[in-house]
Structures are given as C-alpha cells and as structure tokens.
C-alpha cells in the first residue's frame, strides 16, 4: 500500500483563517479540497507539504449565486457543477468539461477550484519517487533536466485541466483571497506557460470562486481527446464559445486549447471567424490556425505528431456542434459522453 508522508493537518473555519495559516506557514503549507490531485502527488512524493490546510469546513465555498451571470464556489465538486441546471443551460462547455474529468468517483470528490489549480502533468514527473530517482529526477521536482526537451530552460509539463479551457472560452474570472486582500482576475490570466510555475496564483492565495459573465446569445462546447471514456486526463481539449447574430454571422468567438502546452492556449482562431458564417471553409481555416498553436510533446499519452494532427478535426467537431449540426453520435463515439 502506498502511504502518505507525515503532515500537519488543520481545518480552518473561514477563508480568513485559512489565509492566515497560509501566510504564516509559507510554501510549506498547501491547500487541500477534494484531494484527488494532491494526495496521489503526495503518495508519490512529488509534493510533500508539511502542512495541509483543509477547505472542507470553510463555509461559503459551495455557494452558487445566480444573478447577472453566475458565480460558483470553488469548493463545488465537479459533479455538483455538472448537475447545476444553470450551468448546463447557459455554459454548456463547462458542463461538458466538468462532466469528463477523470472518473465518476473522482468527479464526486474533486472540486472546481482544484481542477483549475491542477498540477501540470508529465510522464517523467507523475511517477513514484524511486522511478524518478532512476532518471535522476527532473526539472519540475528535485532535478535539473527537462527530459522531454533536454535543452529546454523551462519545465514542459502539460496543463491537464479540462475546466480551464472551457472557462477561458466562457470569459470567466476567478477570485483569489489572501491575508493581504483579494483580487479577481480572468481565468486566462491565472496561468503562465511554465510547467513548474504554471499558476500566477500566489502560494498564500485561496481560489474561492469562479464568476461567469452573462452570456446571452453565446453557445459553447468542449471536446476532449483521451484514450478511454474514463479516468484519462485530456491529451487535447478544445473549448469553443461563439456569439452569433440572428443571421448566423459570428460576432465573437473564442477557441481555447487544453493539454497541448504548459497552460491553456487562447488561440487566434476565434478571431478568424468574426464577421463570417460558420461555413465548412471557415471552420477548416479555424482548425488550421488552432493547430499552429498546439505544441504537444512526448510526455503524455499517444503519439505527439498525431495529437497535433487531430487538433483541426476536434476544432471542427466543436464548431460544427455550435453551428447546430447534430454531433451526438460523434460525441458518444469519441468521448463516450451522451
């Protein structure tokens, strides 16, 4: 049986108290919500916080506020997000993305905030300690070399969150609270393209809520590439959100790629669509544009060239679904999602 390392455990009763502990303990403390990302990492000694600050007893983190737009507490489990009618009705991409994270059990445990802060992943990193010792560790943890790109100066671990691409496409913000105060930033600004320092969130900040703007007139979708219909992290995620005029002319479009870089990528493909219709040609052009942004490497599942090759097809599935094509059979075949 794999065992967790020893740690101090505390369960603050408020966000302020949690923020206070984080400020006092510094980088030795880590937040734990669902635990589905952190605990495996701790068992493999990728992360060994001396103190776990549990958010379980902090009130308010599961709040849902439906006003102009929608605010979701970061402590909602992914299945709770999936089951919110307000999400399914107005923010389909988030509903679809949250519904495809990991497995049914893990979606009952993992939280929205946890999925946004999900540690970047790499086949050289997500291994037991003795395995990593056999390769003399890697740049992300205890080592010097990034083994997937040995001349790289930065860690190339992969952003593997499903909900972030969806929330970026949906134009969402996150609220970050620390002992020093709080701030709200765009989800897109939560990330930076460095596998080791992939979040702009400071270690003492707590991600408490996600706020979605009013998206009347928009349609959105999320398509996920993974080997199996369960468990697997994305090896490509395509989130798209499009606002069209009544005649079908695209007014706004955002296409975001996940799992092909150390951060989700808001591509320029959306801009190509503006002012035109979602014709097959426009969709193909957007697919091509998005492909150029994808930078898969040999550190996740399946062949990296193939993963780049199929970006265009997945962008196509997403945009055709938004256009109104019936993509349910394709969705079921590829993603085992109804």
């Amino acid at each position: 049986m794999m065992r967790l390392p020893w740690f101090k455990y505390c369960a603050p009763k408020s966000v302020a108290e949690a923020a206070h502990i984080l400020a006092a303990e510094g980088r030795d403390a880590m937040l734990i919500a669902g635990g589905t990302d952190l605990l495996p990492n701790m068992k493999r000694r990728q992360q060994t916080p001396a103190t776990l600050v549990s958010l379980r007893e902090v009130p308010g983190l599961k709040d849902v506020v439906n006003g102009r737009g929608l605010t979701l507490g970061a402590g909602l489990t992914l299945n709770q997000v999936v089951n919110l009618p307000a999400v399914k009705d107005a923010y389909l991409a988030l509903h679809q993305a949250a519904g495809q994270v990991a497995s049914p059990h893990l979606r009952n445990m993992g939280t929205l905030g946890g999925n946004l802060c999900l540690d970047t992943r790499c086949l050289y990193y997500n291994q037991n300690e003795d395995w990593r010792r056999a390769i003399d560790f890697c740049m992300k943890c205890e080592g010097e070399t990034c083994w997937v790109a040995t001349s790289s100066k930065r860690c190339m671990a992969v952003s593997s969150t499903d909900t972030a691409p969806a929330l970026i496409a949906l134009g969402a913000n996150v609220r970050l609270v620390s002992a020093a105060g709080e701030r709200e930033i765009a989800v897109n600004d939560l990330y930076q393209n460095d596998g080791a320092e992939y979040l702009t969130r400071q270690p003492d900040e707590i991600l408490t809520a996600v706020s979605l703007p009013d998206l009347a007139g928009w349609k959105s979708t999320y398509w996920k590439l993974r080997r199996r219909g369960s468990f697997d992290f994305p090896i490509l995620g395509v989130a798209a959100a499009v606002r069209t005029a009544p005649d079908g002319t695209v007014l706004d479009a955002r296409i975001v790629l996940g799992a092909v870089s150390s951060r989700p990528i808001l591509t320029e493909a959306g801009g190509l669509l503006q002012g035109g219709k979602l014709s097959d040609e426009a969709i193909a052009a957007a697919g091509k544009k998005a492909t150029s942004a994808a930078k898969p490497l040999d550190n996740t599942d399946l062949d990296l060239y193939w993963r780049k090759d199929v970006v265009s097809a997945f962008v196509g599935y997403a945009l055709r679904e938004i256009r109104g094509d019936d993509m349910s059979a394709t969705r079921l075949r590829i993603m085992r999602q109804l």
Binding site: S103, G229, F231, D232, D301, R336
Partner: peptide, 12 residues
Amino acid sequence: SLLEYKTLTSAD
C-alpha cells in the same frame, strides 16, 4: 501505473 497502462473501461 493503472492510469497510463491503458485498459478498456466499461464505457469503452
């Protein structure tokens, strides 16, 4: 690992 050694799930 069971995550990366891929086997079919009930969904597949």
